[in-house]
Design a protein around this nucleic acid. Sequence first.
DNA 1: GCAACCGCTTGCAAAATGCAATTGGTTTGG
DNA 2: CCAAACCAATTGCATTTTGCAAGCGGTTGC
Lengths: 179, 179
Amino acid sequence: MDVARRSGCPINLSVEVFGDKWSLLILRDMIFGGKRHFREMLRSEEAISSNILADRLKMLVEQGMLTKADDPTHKQKAIYSLTEMSISLVPIMAHLGAWGSRWLPVSEELSIRAKLMEEGGPAMWEQFMSELRQEHLGQSPAAEYVGATPIRAKLQAAYEEVVRRKAGGSQAVDVDAAS
Amino acid sequence: MDVARRSGCPINLSVEVFGDKWSLLILRDMIFGGKRHFREMLRSEEAISSNILADRLKMLVEQGMLTKADDPTHKQKAIYSLTEMSISLVPIMAHLGAWGSRWLPVSEELSIRAKLMEEGGPAMWEQFMSELRQEHLGQSPAAEYVGATPIRAKLQAAYEEVVRRKAGGSQAVDVDAAS
DNA sequence: GCAACCGCTTGCAAAATGCAATTGGTTTGG
DNA sequence: CCAAACCAATTGCATTTTGCAAGCGGTTGC
């Protein structure tokens, strides 16, 4: 778990922090899925295994991308929080989602969030980052966004709408398992 | 070398294409360093080894990020070209460079390009992408950029300026080896 | 003609990954 | 009050990926 430092190039250093097959997906689930606990992250779309998840969380904490704290409501639960460092990854996530949607065989339900983030542009990303700062850093709500529908709720609603539509419009949908 | 497809999420699929420790650095060297040949890419800042480079180039070609062609001037040389798919990574590279420069211990000379790209914003990225389309896809020059200094030349000049200044202003600098 | 260069390939050791089972402890529901 | 479910990991082990160093047959430039 030592620091790599192959070179002082910003792209290389970024790759060394989250340039593996899992780190970015963990951050994605925290940012877009609102996940904060180990067990929640274990239920990722891509089925990460527990040893890898534990390892990556530890690494992300060491690198300042996350912080870890005890959950006051449950002695065994740990709460992971984003830091400003990982919150500022939101524009990159948005671009990555847009790029992937353009070039790769994405599924409709899993790319609807990316589509909305692309359409929303920097203004939407700023609101989202502001909300994440509230949730994870305990910042007080930014005046310009009070009363607005939270971005994650909008994205989630759009996702559920696609799932519902694809299922035929009338069937029940297990939102918890599918999100 | 089979396709992964852990899920249809655009971020996951993107990670599966270039989310390893080397692919993005190879693309960086092609985009910002103008490298087209195997031996040039071997001389990366981070010292990639030849088997890994060969493997990644093969994979990037398979995935449509690069094309490979014979060099008409040299029977043994292969020329690798960017595709629209990899050229459209430029904004992500710019964001990644800016993010890395903000949060990680970058060196001044290796982050000056990222700084300029950030300051230049989307307008500069568009010009750069247009120039890459000329170089790699054989597109004819876009009218709005004829006569303008090419972006890569600007970035390279800024890099050399920093190296020169750091060396003391009067010493000779091996531009080839350091770039 | 010979040294330097061309894009790889090979052999092998080390490290990372992935799976399944398990740990010691906590909380929940009856 | 007890058992079942849940908590964040950890362990052992097999498989895969990575990384280093050396070497390949061939081409090019001097």
